[in-house]
Design a protein around this nucleic acid. Structure first.
Lengths: 232, 232
DNA sequence: CTCTGGCATATTGTATACAAAATGCAACAG
DNA sequence: CTGTTGCATTTTGTATACAATATGCCAGAG
């Protein structure tokens, strides 16, 4: 036997249910504040209440649901403050990822990043927002992977899930989009120069800009009813 | 009715079980790598398997347990790399807390911190390690609270639970203890001076020192068997 | 008309029963 | 003696039944 394991994707029912619910929440199919009826959901998902409840616990731990004793689970309604806080934390984490990545990045990695940056700029030029988001995510995930810190990676993934429901609704305005693409280019240069402090700084600023975009869109009246946030 | 809610501490069985298990794990009563038999544990805790399994999901989300499909749950055995990673993330988070706290800290808060610092130094002088740890935790929690970021606070709390099982075993050597107390004094001065960058830097270094202490103790042969880590 | 109390219903919480999978052991073949 | 196969047992996974709690409605008092 060689050392490599071969974990067959043997997903349990609670995990599968959680994944499905996560998608429904992020997609906006289950809107913020929605109350989740156990019986109804278990029938819709084709599982019994027991594994569904375990799925609830998982999603609650991820911060996607809140569970009130004897009153069931509901989709979390992020307040403006929550969103602000989550982006602040995300900034610190991605900043750390940058610092760590600098110490481990290879020339091959940098070549890959430049290629991804090219794709991103093509998506930007073609005004292909979904492709932009996809590549953007790829780049950030890749950076996290290179950082070589499993705890960091998992924490980021969890936080990202929480933010996705928000970020997808922020209709990136052209000026901010241009700026974001430019920032990405600078980030890759800092990485190539192995300048950890600069990269960290860029990442923190980058996240701060995303935060501002999302907060602005939350202030927008049209979006407000979708969020159901606590703030008046 | 006034706006303040009065949530009667009405804990559900899964929550109570999770809390109890968390204590058992952190206390070392359930050592790293220990396999958790559902039937046996449910009898010991006096609950049925259903709420116990929900407790497992919660603790797994906190990173205190790992659940293998059809093979049950076991207490996580943090590898050296995991511990390193968790401290790195903790450093970034506490650094952020420091930066944020600077913007919101009041003079009254600073007076409180100085008082706590006094207690800490007394504990240090009296070689009262438990008291030191208690006050240390109080100070860090307080800083997080002042930072005013709920997501940050929750993330820190989760990570801390994971690290506690390790930190309690690191037998702080005198030189490092002296150093830690000194660092705390500097931190409070930076806070009083509202110097966010300095405070962040101090916190990151402080965490790095703690990390080193724990990693050293993990390298110590005596502790190794207690950890059951993956690394050889 | 509004508020309170109590009942009927719906929903969540917990225990238990049954199904599926893993584990350990023993018998057997090589 | 070693390794493998199949069975018995144990353990986990899921469904369901029952208990406890919350919710909503209606009647009646003020």
């Amino acid at each position: 036997m060689d050392g490599s394991v071969f974990p067959i994707a043997r997903s349990t029912l609670p995990e599968a249910a959680a994944e499905r619910l996560r998608a429904l929440i992020i997609e906006g199919d289950l809107p913020p504040g929605a109350k989740l009826n156990e019986r109804e959901l278990s029938e819709r998902l084709g599982v019994s209440r027991t594994p569904l409840r375990e799925a609830f616990r998982m999603l609650a731990a991820d911060g996607l649901l809140v569970q009130l004793p004897n009153r069931g689970a509901q989709v979390v309604a992020l307040s403006r403050e929550d969103a602000r806080g989550a982006f602040e934390v995300m900034g610190a984490l991605e900043g750390l990822a940058g610092e760590l990545a600098v110490a481990r990045v290879t020339d091959a990695d940098i070549a890959d990043f430049r290629a991804l940056q090219g794709e991103m700029e093509a998506a930007h030029a073609g005004r292909d927002l979904p492709a932009y988001y996809r590549i953007n995510r790829l780049i950030h995930d890749r950076l996290n992977a290179i950082a070589g810190n499993a705890v960091l990676e998992q924490t980021c993934r969890t936080l990202n899930a929480r933010l996705h429901a928000l970020r997808f609704r922020s209709n990136l305005n052209p000026a901010k989009w241009d700026q974001a693409v430019f920032e990405h280019r600078s980030m890759i240069e800092a990485l190539a120069a192995r300048d950890g402090a600069a990269l960290r700084d860029l990442l923190v600023r980058h996240l701060r800009a995303k935060q501002q975009a999302v907060l602005d869109s939350m202030d927008n009246k049209d979006d407000k009813n979708l969020q159901g946030g606590k703030a008046p």
